[in-house]
Design a protein around this nucleic acid. Structure first.
Lengths: 145, 145
DNA sequence: CGTAAATCCGACATACATGTCCGAATTGCG
DNA sequence: CGCAATTCGGACATGTATGTCGGATTTACG
């Protein structure tokens, strides 16, 4: 599961991706149109701006826009700062496990994390917006979010 | 990611699965041998007992044992009570989405959750204990935990 | 210049997961 | 019976994610 911050970030980014490029939308309007908690979303947007995912403009008619095209913007980029980069490698079998030759339960965690990261990095906002909604052949059957 | 409670539950269950069937181990000893927080693990074990995953015996020489064989005990059973059963179906595209015909971003969530649940339900403690650690062919590449 | 609309930042509040502690009940054994 | 080891349950503490609030700063426009 993704954190709520990540979900909000994705919803906002997708919303912005559907506007014409270069158009800015204020935090208040984004929150309104998406039905999200106004102040919290604002905080999330500020973070995305600091991280270079969005570009902010202050003052009247200010707001946020994507820092790059929706074809270039991956889900991983949007979500990166809200998710644990590499989760602690806990051995489920109780610590009898070297890092260079991990046990099976340990391995599964690593594989999962790699697969997850790969998929998040390979999916763009454009993919999400243009893929047919129902009954399509699935290249990414076991993805997240 | 699984919650810490789930990780602890799995570690304890795997530890018990490696003992002979019918042998009980106290919470204190489990915590000691696994290097986990004693009191918190005790609370997790109590929950597992209430849920029918473990069988508890009180008094001196009491403790916990698996409620079924390690071939029958799935990861999903162990983890069930600590994880969200069916996470809220949020549409990433902003709510313009019926439940009977969800949008693509929505669909991916459902697919992911189904795949995750299937895999957790299909893996037993015995699988984790008997699978070769390294260089095996992976039927479950994108699994969790 | 003054005002309105917006981002920015930090402080605070709340919810939930995690972790600790203590007293009560149960059980085996001398 | 009395003691020790254990589960059980609830109360409490802490940490982190989530959510709210208020004030400072920036900016467009009349």
């Amino acid at each position: 599961m993704l954190s709520r911050s990540s979900i909000y970030a994705l919803q906002a980014a997708l919303h912005l991706a559907r506007k014409e490029e270069g158009v800015s939308v204020s935090a208040a309007r984004l929150a309104e149109e998406l039905g999200l908690p106004r102040e919290y979303l604002a905080k999330v947007l500020r973070r995305l701006s600091r991280e270079g995912v969005l570009v902010s403009s202050r003052g009247v008619y200010g707001g946020y826009r994507l820092a790059m095209s929706r074809e270039e913007m991956t889900v991983e980029r949007v979500v990166r700062s809200f998710e644990e980069v590499d989760p602690p490698r806990i051995c489920l079998l109780g610590g009898h496990c070297h890092t260079d030759e991990p046990c099976s339960a340990h391995l599964r965690r690593l594989e999962w994390n790699e697969a997850r990261k790969r998929i998040l990095a390979a999916t763009t906002l454009d993919d999400l917006l243009t893929e047919p909604a129902v009954g399509r052949q699935t290249a990414f059957v076991s993805t997240d979010f």
